[in-house]
Design a protein around this nucleic acid. Structure first.
Lengths: 202, 202
DNA sequence: CGATGTTATGGCACTGCATGCCAAAATAGA
DNA sequence: TCTATTTTGGCATGCAGTGCCATAACATCG
């Protein structure tokens, strides 16, 4: 799909980037559900059929570069030195995964608001979340010499996801300048206090 | 929809129970995706249109009595005496929610296998899971004098869900007689050790 | 320059889920 | 029997997604 070197044959008439831009424009204007694939195709001057060759479904459009991010998460984890405790490694990786360039914040906020605020997209995100959890679980399993199908790695993956989702939720709802990273640490602190001290942290 | 006392008017030609039974039969035979609403309607001798009056979508059929279970969860939580620590209350409620009658185990296993093993249903379950989390979050919020929109209650709800899902996953994959409750406690133990001791429990 | 192979596109047909609308059927009660 | 009430069935429609195939637009080779 992404041709690094010039192949022969008919050149592509559009790109993932162009589609994403056009789609987000329409989503912001009419909402996700009310925007049809025909609408997006019309804006781009492309056939509906072609759109489905770039994105397997309408739900996949807002996710953009998620696959690449997953790869980065995996590489980050496996590059952590073995001296670092597992918990530390995972914590750092999750924070790194959600680190944002200053200029990318606004766009990322729009994207996440769409993903978290649209029922259809919430549902579809299960697949992506499962992939994300699996990356964590595989690393944890390796470090503890367990199988990725064992319970502990899966629990860790799912709990990390739970914390990350809670952090993003707060990030989208508040307007003060708290960053995702800070909120992530906050969510972890909440969980710790809940499990250990039995009393909430302020 | 569920008429307690005989109303006038045309009587209903089918029931949620009959639909569920027919649907599960077909799902088990051909799989969920390959079974169309037309198929189910044909088996019942009912029009497809009518099916959509009993269940808002095909995805909702496997969930059955979930709404009632949610009510039970809420009632259980709010009936816990205030002397019981929040953590204890939540733990007990989650365990109670997943307690099964001996005779219902086989059917529940089929149901959960379908829900957890079908991509479409996994996606759709986000809505139900969110409702479930919210019940927990509202209780935790009340006990701590917080808003259900605050971070701590939401984190607790989501983490409980993460543990419950992990327990069910294991429950479905293994064939020895471990019950869901035992697996739930196991998942919690894993999390505790991961967060506190830094080493996995055997 | 023209023939050839390669690749992406566009159009069409089709399945399936879901929804709105309305006439007709089946009941209870007057 | 007539009426009010409630459910049903059928029809039309919209939209996502998929398979199929002819065709357009390129690169390259002869």
């Amino acid at each position: 799909m992404v041709s690094a070197q010039r192949a022969s044959g008919r050149p592509q008439v559009t790109s993932h980037g162009a589609i994403e831009a056009a789609a987000f424009e329409l989503f912001a204007h009419r909402g996700f559900e009310a925007t049809t694939m025909d609408d997006i195709a019309a804006v781009l001057g492309v056939s509906r059929r072609t759109l489905f060759r770039y994105y397997p479904s309408k739900n996949d459009i807002p996710w953009g570069l998620f696959d690449a991010s997953l790869l980065r998460l995996r590489e980050f984890l496996w590059a952590v030195p073995a001296e670092v405790p597992v918990f530390e490694a995972v914590q750092r990786a999750v924070l790194d995964f959600n680190r944002l360039d200053e200029g990318a914040i606004a766009q990322h906020r729009r994207r996440m608001a769409l993903l978290l605020g649209t029922p259809t997209l919430q549902a579809h995100s299960v697949i992506r979340h499962a992939q994300w959890c699996r990356v964590i679980a595989e690393y944890v399993a390796a470090r503890y010499a367990l199988s990725p199908e064992d319970m502990l790695p899966r629990v860790v993956g799912r709990v990390c996801l739970a914390l990350a989702m809670s952090a993003y939720e707060q990030w989208l709802e508040q307007d003060d300048g708290k960053g995702v990273e800070e909120l992530l640490e906050r969510s972890m602190a909440h969980l710790r206090h809940y499990l250990v001290d039995g009393d909430p942290v302020p």
